[in-house]
């Protein structure tokens, strides 16, 4: 019997697979298609204090084996997420990881404090890496000192473990990871999207209304793997890895690189059943590779 379970701070996962924040809304759309209780966890869409309309359209553009998005943290705001979206998810036997975003430290603290008290929120994912909003987001994720202090401030008020979502748009991701570890983070999620652009060739204009967008999809998997590999060697924090995961072998690769669990993002848009499909294939694939549990596989690249 293959053991798919994963234990992480605040989280007892049935399996290591979860949809990534921003690619799954608050679960309602996918609940029409399959039972959400099959998932290891759900990372819900970023929540800010106030309602956010997000960026103008076009917000997405397809690129080679990937896509750019600049949604701009559209969300109904803390009150509605805590009052409607989270209670709706309570009927599923699945832990929720709430993604927290903001413009100021106070914003992050306010959302973290309130949302961490929801009964089904078992962990927070602090979004210091959204590349698509002018203020906040990525500005917190590119300076180690700022990232450390924000982590500290959020840790003080959160009633559940805190994971920090790292941006790949930095020179030295290890220094940011170490800083959030010093700040008291319980774990790391990585990576967010890579800043990119697409031009309309005929007009020379950027396709995305926001001009730049975050690149995701299979195109970014090598970058994500490299970063997980590096960070996992330099911190003790558990990592939830993500970036271009589309199939069961991608999951194996992330675990081998040092991730303890794996999030699936853009692939949900291409194949809405991708998460349950991967979960279904995981036991056999582990068995084929000679492993009895997911945990045996974590970080195996470092032990070879």
């Amino acid at each position: 019997m293959t053991d798919l379970t994963v234990k992480l701070p605040g989280l007892k996962l049935k399996n290591p697979i979860m949809p990534a924040s921003g690619c799954f809304g608050f679960g309602k759309e996918y609940a029409q298609l399959y039972d959400l209780s099959q998932l290891g966890a759900i990372m819900i869409k970023a929540t800010t204090v106030e309602t956010r309309l997000g960026n103008p359209t076009p917000r997405v553009a397809e690129t080679a084996s990937g896509m750019l998005n600049a949604i701009g943290l559209q969300n109904p705001g803390l009150e509605k997420v805590a009052g409607q979206e989270l209670p709706w998810l309570e009927k599923y036997d699945v832990p929720i990881i709430a993604n927290v975003a903001g413009t100021t430290t106070e914003d992050y603290v306010e959302v973290a404090k309130a949302i961490s008290q929801a009964p089904n929120v078992h962990a927070l994912e602090i979004n210091i890496s959204c590349p698509n909003v002018k203020l906040g987001g990525i500005t917190f994720g590119t300076d180690p000192d700022v990232a450390r202090e924000l982590t500290r401030a959020v840790k003080e008020v959160s009633s559940v473990p805190v994971y920090i979502k790292l941006s790949p748009n930095v020179t030295d991701i290890v220094s940011i990871a170490k800083a959030v570890e010093e700040g008291g983070a319980d774990g790391i999620t990585m990576i967010n999207t890579l800043l990119g652009m697409r031009m309309a060739t005929k007009t020379g204009r950027p396709v995305i209304a926001n001009i730049t967008g975050g690149l995701s999809g299979p195109a970014i998997k090598p970058v994500a793997l490299r970063m997980v590999y590096e960070v996992s060697q330099h911190t003790k924090l558990p990592i939830i890895g993500m970036g271009g995961v589309t199939n069961v072998d991608d999951v194996i690769d992330f675990l081998s690189a040092g991730a303890s669990a794996v999030a699936v993002g853009t692939a949900n848009f291409v194949n809405p059943f991708v998460c349950p499909e991967i979960i279904g294939q995981l036991p056999e694939r582990l068995h084929e590779l000679g492993f009895d549990s997911v945990e045996e596989l974590v970080g195996r690249s470092h032990r070879l």
Partner: peptide, 21 residues
């Protein structure tokens, strides 16, 4: 312009007379 087609990705949004928020 659409992403997921099922309402999860928030790519194909429009303003509406029904709500300002």
């Amino acid at each position: 312009r659409m992403g997921c087609g099922i309402g999860a990705c928030f790519a194909c949004v429009c303003r509406t007379t029904k709500s300002e928020t």
